[in-house]
């Protein structure tokens, strides 16, 4: 009995370490990819010296950050200042519990998967507010205020948009939502079904998701040109690295959730591309499709980052309250109507 308990704990610990390693790896190469892609779009080259095509640049930067002096400003609330990066990072890590990487590659397929994701990801903003407050710096505090206002404006449309695939699938479970998009062909993905309602939901989800992870058109909480760096002005060394890690891990999460809910999760676009396999081969192929689809969205995020300007605070709030929430309510109503009247084959 005791041995079994120990074994279970060991396996869970192993899974946790594997996921942490996966996050670190993905974030490192997302940062590298961001620098390269943005460089290419700005007709530059980007980092290409250290390692083949600059692949070792980010690990080297991470090592450098580890060695940096850990500055805690005078007048800062030491305790809050120290735990803020942890409060920000841990939720971004915890989301990966329900991340369906592939067929059977899910740490815990919770029956409230989507609810868990949206609940956990909004904890991060508490860490951001704490960081802004504890820094004892006016830029940080302004960034924190903006973060709080932004969260209130964007959490609602995001959850309204998330409800649409849930209604279509009839399940909050990640696995259940992916099963509902089964069938082999990409036409079974939610984005191509339901008279375009999920497509609209997807757009709202992505817009709200960009706001949620402080991505470019909505990164008013760290707006470099106005607030220096927003809530993380005073952070340096490893604490700053944790904020950075969280930002990219959350961006990956947004893309992965979008893939899961609207683009068929780990299903291949065509049946002959690995739908008929079983066992380990199926796992590997489904992992490949999940990562490939997510990579496309990560690229789009970087593309957006290299292109669009930042919106003003009042524009952001107007857009959130006056456009996104009414649209979210509308698509929720439409999805409910369509499903209740049986107009879509489920």
């Amino acid at each position: 009995m005791n041995k079994e308990l120990l074994l279970t704990a060991g396996i869970h610990l192993l899974v946790a370490i594997v996921i942490l390693g996966f996050i670190l790896f993905v974030v490192m190469y997302m940062i590298w990819g961001l620098r390269r892609i943005m460089g290419f779009m700005q007709v530059r080259i980007g980092p290409n010296r250290l390692g083949w095509q600059g692949l070792l640049q980010t690990p080297a930067d991470a090592l450098k950050l580890l060695q940096k002096e850990d500055v805690i400003p005078k007048g800062a609330d030491r305790w809050l200042f120290t735990i803020a990066p942890i409060i920000v990072f841990v939720p971004a890590y915890m989301v990966y519990v329900v991340m369906p990487f592939g067929d059977g590659l899910i740490a815990k397929d919770l029956n409230i998967g989507i609810l868990y994701v949206s609940a956990i990801t909004s904890i991060a903003v508490i860490g951001i507010v704490i960081a802004g407050w504890a820094s004892n710096n006016k830029w940080s505090l302004l960034g924190a205020f903006r973060a709080a206002a932004q969260l209130v404006a964007y959490e609602v449309p995001m959850i309204l948009a998330l409800c649409v695939p849930v209604i279509f699938a009839g399940s909050l479970r990640m696995g259940g939502i992916i099963e509902a998009q089964e069938g082999g062909w990409f036409t079974n993905w939610f984005i191509f079904r339901g008279y375009g309602i999920p497509a609209l939901a997807f757009l709202i989800y992505m817009a709200a998701g960009l706001a949620e992870v402080n991505h470019i058109p909505f990164d008013i909480m760290e707006a470099e040109s106005e607030l220096v760096a927003g809530f993380n002005v005073e952070y340096s060394g490893m604490k700053f690295a944790l904020f950075f890690l969280e930002e990219f891990a959350a961006a990956f999460t947004i893309c992965a959730i979008a893939v899961t809910l609207f683009f068929g999760g780990w299903h291949a676009p065509f049946p002959f591309l690995g739908e008929n396999l079983t066992g380990i081969a199926k796992m590997a192929v489904s992992l490949f499709w999940f990562l490939a689809k997510t990579a496309v969205f990560v690229f789009v995020l970087m593309w957006i980052r290299a292109t669009w300007p930042r919106v003003r605070v009042d524009q952001l709030m107007n857009f959130g309250w006056k456009v996104m929430i009414p649209m979210g309510l509308f698509i929720l109503l439409a999805a409910g109507t369509v499903v209740t009247l049986g107009w879509v084959k489920l």
């Binding site: 892609i37 290419f40 779009m41 700005q42 007709v43 593309w303 957006i304 290299a306 292109t307 669009w308």
Partner: peptide, 9 residues
């Protein structure tokens, strides 16, 4: 705007 950055890439 997206098209411009993509072409420049």
């Amino acid at each position: 705007g997206m098209a411009v950055t993509f072409v420049n890439m």
